[in-house]
């Protein structure tokens, strides 16, 4: 593998992890808002229990993506930084409101306007994936004008493009789908069967919607980014495989099991694999372009010497961190049963 390919793979990996963790995070915030009145089912509790310890870790990934991008592809960052000023700032504003109010609502649990805090963070939370994903169609070309020698994003064109809206629809439905699926699994493994029933139902509703949105994306892509569409079609077997995994997940949720209906763990695993395959195909077809048609992984690449030091630091860093992640996962994901009823410190 060439250096630049290795670099874009690392970035793709971060984006994939953030896409999964982030959608779960934002979705969980949304569900905890939706079910705020249904105290009996514990659905809000379960969502918060997942969210409280993880949101900070999830947030680091977004920083990791930005850092990896400008350190591996400084030229691409120049273009993206210039054109994404407005959407990027909107994301940042939403993110700061969301994170701030998420924390505030936890610490103001007996506050009479607490509900308002939960609503603010829940709603700004689902808007974030919607804006984040808009970066994808922008990078597929067609939205950047060159005026007086500088690159400008044509916002009017962005917000009138059906392609952008398919992506936005996909981002929102996927957030809700992935998070309800994860929370279903999470509540089942901590014996919260009422919450489980709620989230299982939500996953069964939002799942097909997100698949529908994915199909919309392919339809609009055909006309708005045909170069990408054509290349993705060369990976048809993988795309079918991805849809197949979706079906497996659906069946897993419907199958009977000893305790409650469905096998959410199997569904979570197959859905993560599904997203993995689909994003692999998307990413693979997007190459060599970072921003179509001007910035490629070759012409945007950093200095090779700098890349080598960076890459070594990545390997060493994650090797050192791995036990930390493992310990964290064991405490909050695996052994969540004993944890479930306890109040935080």
């Amino acid at each position: 593998m060439g250096d630049s390919l290795l670099a874009i793979t690392v970035i793709w990996g971060f984006i994939f992890i953030y896409a999964v963790m982030g959608t779960m995070d934002f979705g969980a915030g949304f569900w905890s808002m939706v079910y705020i009145n249904r105290t009996k089912t514990n659905a809000t509790d379960v969502a918060n229990r997942y969210l409280s310890p993880t949101w900070e870790v999830t947030n680091v990934f977004i920083v990791a993506i930005v850092v990896a991008l400008f350190s591996f592809f400084p030229r691409a960052t120049f273009t993206l930084g210039t054109v994404l000023l407005v959407p990027g700032s909107i994301i940042l504003l939403l993110l700061s409101i969301r994170s701030g109010f998420l924390v505030f609502s936890h610490y103001a649990s007996s506050f009479k306007y607490r509900r308002a805090l939960v609503y603010i963070s829940g709603i700004s939370g689902v808007l974030i994936p919607a804006f984040l994903i808009a970066v994808l169609p922008v990078s597929q070309g067609g939205f950047i004008d060159i005026i007086d020698g500088t690159q400008r994003l044509n916002l009017a064109r962005v917000f009138s493009s059906p392609h952008v809206y398919s992506f936005i629809g996909f981002a929102i439905t996927s957030s809700l789908f992935l998070s309800s699926l994860l929370l279903a699994d999470y509540s089942k493994s901590s014996d919260e069967m009422e919450a489980y029933a709620v989230y299982r139902r939500d996953a069964l509703i939002t799942g097909p919607l997100s698949l529908l949105m994915a199909i919309f994306i392919m339809i609009t892509m055909q006309s708005e980014a045909s170069w990408l569409y054509d290349k993705m079609m060369q990976f048809k077997p993988l795309l079918y495989g991805s849809v197949g995994l979706f079906v497996v997940a659906g069946i897993a949720l419907l199958l009977p099991s000893q305790k409650g209906k469905g096998m959410p763990r199997l569904a979570v695993v197959s859905i993560v694999l599904q997203y993995f395959l689909a994003s692999y195909v998307y990413g693979r077809s997007h190459l060599p372009y970072v921003v179509y048609p001007n910035v490629t992984i070759e012409n945007g690449f950093t200095h090779p010497d700098a890349f080598h030091s960076l890459f070594i630091v990545y390997i060493v860093g994650f090797a050192i961190l791995f036990p930390g992640f493992f310990y964290f996962w064991r405490l909050f994901m695996k052994d969540n049963k004993e944890y479930s009823k306890k109040k935080p410190y």
Partner: peptide
Amino acid sequence: MEIVGKVMALPFQIEIY
């Protein structure tokens, strides 16, 4: 940031950890 990306990315990188 273009210069930082080429020359001074290490601290940002390590900071992630």
